Amino acid sequence: MTLAEQVLQAARGASATIATAESCTGGMIIAALTDIPGSSDVVDRGFITYSNDAKEQMLGVKAQTLTQFGAVSEQVASEMAAGALQNSGAKLAVSVTGIAGPGGSEFKPEGRVCFGLAQTGANVVTETVEFGAIGRAKVRQKTVEHALTLLLEALKD
């Protein structure tokens, strides 16, 4: 069973619905879930917010947060996850914002991805993972896998 199938099965068991808020993955997380037939019973929606304007308009990320911390930050990932939860019918939302590459800087290197996880009635949890300069495709794929793992762990708790 794939990781996405495990997430869907766990969501059904928990009577939970899922939303995603994606930047660097451009919809790959929601695609992994919706590639599976029958996923519509637990997948609510996916927000693809690649630009800062989209993050603000669709998810309610504050302009001040983006200015102060930058788009690739746990603060923005937190607001993205909270916004996805608030602007959907989901009980669980995961967010990702990162630098898939090529590029990055000394302060925000290629391969850095910030994750947020929001659940109804709980505080948003965030973390940063440094995948390293392993190439754009690999960073994005590892981001999808990690986001699905976060969802699975939350659904099992």
Results as ranks from 00 to 15, higher is better:
residue 65 T to G: 00
residue 150 L to Y: 12
residue 82 A to C: 04
residue 61 V to L: 02
residue 39 S to K: 10
residue 71 A to N: 03
residue 127 E to G: 08
residue 10 A to Y: 05
residue 60 G to Q: 03
residue 7 V to N: 05
residue 61 V to F: 00
residue 80 M to H: 04
residue 70 G to L: 00
residue 55 K to L: 09
residue 132 G to L: 13
residue 30 I to T: 09
residue 100 A to E: 05
residue 5 E to R: 11
residue 72 V to H: 02
residue 105 S to L: 05
residue 124 V to E: 08
residue 54 A to W: 06
residue 155 L to S: 07
residue 118 A to T: 09
residue 76 V to G: 02
residue 7 V to F: 11
residue 78 S to T: 01
residue 94 V to K: 04
residue 106 E to N: 01
residue 90 A to I: 02
residue 20 T to I: 15
residue 156 K to P: 01
residue 7 V to S: 06
residue 108 K to A: 03
residue 11 A to L: 11
residue 134 I to G: 05
residue 141 Q to V: 06
residue 150 L to V: 12
residue 143 T to E: 15
residue 96 V to W: 03
residue 96 V to C: 11
residue 5 E to Y: 06
residue 15 S to G: 07
residue 24 C to M: 03
residue 129 V to W: 10
residue 126 T to F: 07
residue 114 C to Q: 07
residue 77 A to M: 05
residue 4 A to V: 10
residue 103 G to F: 08
residue 111 G to L: 06
residue 43 V to W: 08
residue 135 G to E: 11
residue 9 Q to V: 10
residue 147 A to N: 07
residue 61 V to N: 01
residue 152 L to M: 10
residue 8 L to T: 11
residue 57 Q to Y: 03
residue 39 S to G: 08
residue 117 L to E: 15
residue 71 A to P: 02
residue 118 A to L: 11
residue 96 V to H: 02
residue 3 L to F: 00
residue 98 G to P: 04
residue 23 S to Q: 09
residue 31 A to V: 10
residue 57 Q to R: 13
residue 68 Q to Y: 03
residue 78 S to L: 01
residue 105 S to C: 02
residue 129 V to H: 12
residue 77 A to G: 02
residue 107 F to I: 01
residue 58 M to P: 01
residue 117 L to I: 12
residue 67 T to D: 09
residue 107 F to M: 03
residue 124 V to Q: 11
residue 16 A to M: 14
residue 135 G to R: 03
residue 1 M to N: 03
residue 107 F to W: 03
residue 1 M to D: 01
residue 153 E to N: 14
residue 19 A to S: 14
residue 123 N to I: 02
residue 140 R to K: 14
residue 85 L to P: 00
residue 50 Y to N: 09
residue 34 T to C: 13
residue 58 M to F: 10
residue 136 R to Q: 11
residue 33 L to Q: 10
residue 37 P to G: 14
residue 51 S to H: 12
residue 104 G to N: 08
